[in-house]
Amino acid sequence: MVQTVGVLALQGAFAKHIAMFRQLGLHAKEVRQVSDLDGVHGLCIPGGESTAMSKMMVRWDLLSPLKERLCSGMPVLGTCAGLILLSNHVRDWEELPRLGGLDVTVQRNAYGRQIDSFGAPVELNLAQDKSTSPYSGVFIRAPRIEEHEVGADVEILGTRAGEAVLVRQGNILAATFHPELTDDDRIHRWFINTMMNS
């Protein structure tokens, strides 16, 4: 049976994630309300504005149903704003309503404004991924995972200049950059093969 990924479509780059999951042979659908979660095997929280997404999750009562699925072990991929919404701690914004589950402290817009956004090589450390070609990460008003605030259960699967930028904790995979904006599908493929098919 082909699995279905539900991509949170409250705002942001959801269409790019959906295109990538479909290219890799999965069903992908937009999640805008609780009933859209029916028949979903995995979740994706895209990049966008974390404040805007948080407001809409509260407004349409999506926080608890999503948290329940996360707690029951449903695999989830979060990118950029998605990572912020999955983080247990947000520097200077602890009150932001969010999902949590990932034992890190994250700083929003940590690199500055849009003129400070950048592309940079990411060193991937994905078991089962034998490709050695460099991965280029796109960092857009990106958050930063604080160095000394990474929990013991958090595996670091990608680094940029020594900093953790791709992390996994159990059923959560999260990146500070945007794998959906490149043609390189290694991270989505790894998520599907390792986390959705296990």
Partner: peptide
């Protein structure tokens, strides 16, 4: 260029809003 890509990326983030 990569600057163009990064900038289109921000526009992508503003979609649906």
């Amino acid at each position: 260029t990569s600057v163009w890509r990064t900038n289109v990326g921000l526009a992508e983030m503003l979609k649906g809003g």
